[in-house]
Design a protein around this nucleic acid. Structure first.
Lengths: 229, 229
DNA sequence: GTATAACACGAACACTTGTTCGCTGTCAAT
DNA sequence: ATTGACAGCGAACAAGTGTTCGTGTTATAC
């Protein structure tokens, strides 16, 4: 006969009770459980403890203080919760957040991560699997593209680019450059000695050749993220 | 700095608390401790718990129910008590008591253990180390010698003999015999076929030779105990 | 839509439990 | 003989803690 699963509150009660027992050497009171789990009423705690007893997770001795005892079934539950918790923690560690530092538009230089890192709002972060990056996540930042000026870089309006602050580039890197002091562009960078070739990602478009003095590298593009509207 | 040893009550409190904790999964209340240890007043239990806390055997959380916690020092104490208890038990098992069933006098037959065993008074028992006996202690009995009639057996008035009920003897055994239906004597027994030789323990005295029909063996002497007056 | 069960809640109450108080007895030190 | 420390005690009290009651909300079954 299948039994009803534990409610979230009941799971919290068990976990709190186990931890309290380990830490204090005695079971918690009904009021201590309520406080920890966010239940103001002793009768609601009492009701849930009754349900846990019914389901076999604990025993109760009536009319004595701290009259709870967790059963082996509770221990097994705790173990499976711990394993699940470890799996979740592992997943969380593989999941990283990169600050969304602002916008990238043609007419302004890139704001690098260093400018915003201490103050970014976590709600504006971009979440990625760690495995998707070839770099350590520290110091990276994200920018949202505004306008069509990056179409030659195969980047649409609204896309997000993940960048690493970097002021020199190797041939072939896609970089954000502040060009001739009036335009930001995303292009593959090639240093040809006396001149810089900036090659669009769109293969049907021609490269441009500029004097090295007119180029200011502001970061390397690691990823481009396009989301469905 | 040497500290005061635990009082008997304090030791009992610790041991009870440890056992209660193991069995119930929670510490006892002050009233439960009092009941177990024979203290009627909660303030006396409270006083002793305060002393145990002072001495480092437990911690107390004030103003909470079941607010005791045994320390590692208490655990070490419990271990040493257990070891001492085991040693005591071992010594007690090596110590045996043999019922002092009565007197041995020349003019009466020996009262054997079987006659008295169910009713002997433990205060009249003789206590011995088990190692001093070559026999199992079951069924043995002790008699106190009255008179000088056993001097030829090197047994003085007032000595105690430990006997085993036995109605046949091997050559050389010292036995109590009821001789010619009128005398108890303690002698080394030799069966010479047509006659029995009863040899005094005192080597300067002569043996006596009797018809087997005139001899009734009543027990074998295992030990003679002589105590300072 | 209705009835029922499950879940939730605040409040009052009953009982358990720890602390405090005033007193007594014993023993060691002076 | 007196005094102080220690241990013990019964009783009262304060606070902690579990149980019960009446009511409300939500989910489920029919």
């Amino acid at each position: 006969m299948s039994e009803k699963p534990l409610s979230t509150r009941q799971q919290k009660i068990l976990q709190f009770t186990q931890g309290y027992m380990d830490e204090n050497g005695r079971p918690p009171t009904i009021r201590e459980i309520g406080k920890a789990v966010g239940i103001n009423s002793t009768s609601v705690v009492n009701y849930n403890l009754g349900k846990l007893e019914e389901k076999g997770y604990l025993d109760r001795d009536p009319d004595v203080s701290r009259g709870l005892r967790l059963t082996e079934k509770a221990g097994a539950f705790s173990n499976s919760v711990n394993q699940a918790t470890a799996a979740v923690r592992n997943a969380v560690e593989r999941l990283i957040k990169i600050p969304l530092a602002g916008d990238i538009v043609a007419g302004k230089p890139v704001m690098t991560g260093n400018d915003t890192f201490g103050t970014y709002d976590e709600e504006d972060a971009v979440e990625l699997s760690r495995a998707m990056l070839s770099e350590k996540p520290e110091g990276l930042f994200a920018l949202r593209v505004r306008g069509d000026s990056m179409i030659d870089a195969m980047v649409n309006d609204g896309d997000i680019v993940i960048m690493k602050p970097q002021y020199e580039a190797r041939n072939g890197d896609m970089v954000a450059v502040w060009l001739r002091n009036d335009t930001t562009t995303l292009k593959h960078f090639y240093n040809e000695g006396h001149q810089i070739r900036l090659q669009p990602a769109n293969p049907t478009m021609d490269a441009i050749y500029v004097d090295p003095a007119e180029v200011q590298i502001q970061g390397r593009v690691l990823m481009v993220l396009r989301q469905a509207p």
